[in-house]
Structures are given as C-alpha cells and as structure tokens.
Write a protein that binds this DNA or RNA. Structure first.
Lengths: 202, 202
DNA sequence: CATTTTATGTTAACATTGTCAACATTGTTT
DNA sequence: AAACAATGTTGACAATGTTAACATAAAATG
C-alpha cells in the first residue's frame, strides 16, 4: 500500500509539524502533557521518527521555546517606541505582556520556567540581542523616558529590569492562581502600573 | 533477623522522615529529582511503604509544600510590624523574601510553582488566614504605612499584592537565570525597592 | 537510466517511573 | 492469648524516553 490519500512513508516536513503540534499541546494542556508517543500519534508517525529531527525530548522542547519567543517578541509592535505618549506606550506594553501571559499561561510558563529555562541560559541572556528583542524594546522605551525627563536618570537596563520584574511577578501570581482576583483585576493592573511610575508613597 | 542496629521492620515515624528527606531532595536537586524509589531507598524502606502514609506522590508533594510554607512564614518575624521605621521594615521583609528565594531556589519554585500550585488553590488562597500568614503580615505593614501617612490611601490588599508581585517577579527572574547579574545585584534590589516607594518618575 | 548513498521512518526491546494487589510482620486491643 | 489494625515487602503492570536494527523513499552519482 502506498500513496493513499494521506499515507505516505515520508512526512515531508515532519520537523515543522512536530514543533507546531507540540506548541499546540503545550498551549492546551501544559508542557507536561507532551509525550513523544502522543505527539507522534497526532501526526500519524512512529514515536522514534522524532529522533531523526531532534536529539531528545529536551532538544525538541528547546526548539519550541525558541519559536515561542520569536512569536512573543514579534507580538510587541516596534511602533510602540515611536509613540508620543510614553506613559501610554508603557501601559500598552505592560497590558500586552500580562495579557499574553493570561491568554497563554502554559506557553508563558514554558518560556519563563526553569526546568527548560536553564537550557535557555546557554544560548541567550539579556546581553544577547537576538534572544531578548522584547526586553531591548523595553530598554529603548525606558531610555526615551529618561531622555524626555519623565524618568529619573539611572541605568536604563536596571530600570527596565524593575519594570519587567513587576510584569513577570504579576503574570506569574495571576496565572498560577496565587492571586484570587474576582472582578478587580483592572484595579490591580492600574495600581501596579501607577506604582511603577509614581510609587506607593503619599 | 531482627533489631539489628538500624534494621527494624517498622520504621516508627516514617511519615515525618519521608517529608524531611523529600524536602532535602527538593532543596538539593529540585522537585523533579523526587522519585518514590530513590526516596524510599534513602530511608532503607520499600517503594510502596510510602503508600501507607500518602495516597500518591502528589499527596506527598502537597504535604511537603505545606511544611515548606509553614517554615517560610515562620521565618518572617512578627516584630517586623512593631518596628518604628516602616520603610526599613519593608526593606527587611523584601530582602528576607528574595534572600530566601535565592538561597532555596528549588524550594521556592516548588512553593510557588504551578504543577503543584494548582493543588494549593483547593485548600488555600489569599483569603485563607492559616495559609497566607506571610502575606497577611505584609498587608498589616501596608495598613500601618497608610495609617502613618507614608502610603497613599488605597485598598491595602491591592497595595500588598503590588509589592508581592515585585518581590515574586524579581525572585523568579533571578533564580531562573533570566537576569544575568554579576555584581550589581544590590543596585537592582535597591532600585526595585525604591521604585515601589517613590516610582521611577523624575 | 541504474546504482549507490543519504535522509527519513518503523519495529522491537530496555530501563525508569508511579501505582496496585497480595502477602508478611509488628503493634495494639480485647 | 487471640483477633485486629497498622505498617512494610515483593511482584507485577502500564506509561514513558531512548536506542538498535531494519525498511523505504529521495537524492546524488556514474
């Protein structure tokens, strides 16, 4: 039997299909839901076929994290740095960041988790331009805020890291269920945002 | 053969030993390093003996998380609320929090992770006094800061959550290796702290 | 075009893991 | 002392990642 409708021995672009399907699995049920058997079954392929394209399961995970970061960074519009209203740019960026985390909690956890995040260290850190595009957009915005006398003069990377910490912390607390927010999520976001700008001080 | 030095059929307090040893394993090599076989081997006991004290591996994990939280909360001195210098109290609390995370990254990840954190939701959330002692100490401090006109008047729980977000985010970024800090860790902490109080605004 | 080589996929087997059932031993109660 | 409960052991099972040996298709080579 050969060349039946969709029954070909060679899958042709199995590698991409594996990445796409794996990402869908993560998005739906979290990274622990990925089993090579389940993944291969979804693609009508044998378990071990995966090993022709990835050295190991970890290697595959590493690959889908890369893709996830690419898409994540691509989601941050460059024009945000060009806007006139810097405060609003920050607000849009922060809302987009936390919105992504809440819309894709499993993907977000995978991207910024540790189990796999340690592998990320090897190939990318803050000082690696290619791998932290989003963060560098934030730094650029902070620099602009300093230049326009909105922010105090200070190390822009440090200030950006502080902002990132807040967004990351809030995202994690929300998606991991440590904050039980019923209806005042907007209030929490607004207060977090305003605190970064003005502080809690009276 | 019976009653040889340390070879008794009944372990006597296996449950506590399991919890203690499991916590040590997590602390040393992370939660994924816990396998029931390895754990039982360390205690010179059979794999299935564990099931006389815990319904499942998840049940055991749930138990050690409880213990970890108890010890964590106990580490926050009550007197911190009594201090005269409120700002310093905040600083001590924040430094203690982040210090704990950096000293015990694997424990911290387990406590505030998701895989297991979702189980936490069942029995504890912000509004459960017994399970969020540390957070309630923070709320009390925020309340005091408002009462003494240091902080703006606002929902104390929201303000406390903002502070927690910052501490949690910074802790996670640090222990998961997303921030590569060489020598200016103190500068980052100080800026984070001051930002919460004064904001980044000029 | 025929043959060889490379790329890709399959099957069978293995070790590790959590879990359970059946059995063994010790401690407690009556 | 006898019955019962608590605790621990052994053997088995299914799910999983991984590897080795084999199979098939595509590409390269002459």
């Amino acid at each position: 039997m050969k060349n039946n409708a969709n029954t070909t021995y060679h899958h042709k672009n199995l590698k991409d299909s594996l990445i796409d399907t794996a990402l869908l699995m993560v998005k739906k049920d979290g990274i622990s839901s990925i089993t090579l058997r389940e993944l291969s079954k979804k693609l009508g392929v044998s378990r071990s076929a995966i090993y022709r394209h990835f050295d190991s399961k970890d290697d595959l995970i590493k690959a889908i994290i890369q893709i996830a970061f690419s898409r994540f960074d691509a989601g941050i519009p460059v024009e945000i740095i060009e806007s006139d209203d810097i405060v609003d740019s920050f607000r849009i960026m922060a809302k987009g960041y936390i919105g992504f985390a809440m819309d894709n909690p499993n993907i977000y956890r995978m991207m910024f988790g540790h189990e796999v995040g340690k592998q990320r260290e090897e190939s990318c850190d803050i000082e690696n331009e290619d791998e932290a595009i989003g963060f560098h957009k934030l730094i650029a915005l902070v620099q602009k805020a300093q230049d326009t006398n909105l922010f105090k003069k200070d190390n822009p990377m440090l200030q950006a890291t502080v902002i990132w910490s807040m967004m990351h912390g809030l995202s994690n607390l929300l998606i991991d269920g440590h904050i039980i927010i019923k209806d005042n999520l907007d209030a929490l976001f607004d207060l977090s945002f305003l605190t970064i700008i003005n502080g809690l001080k009276k």
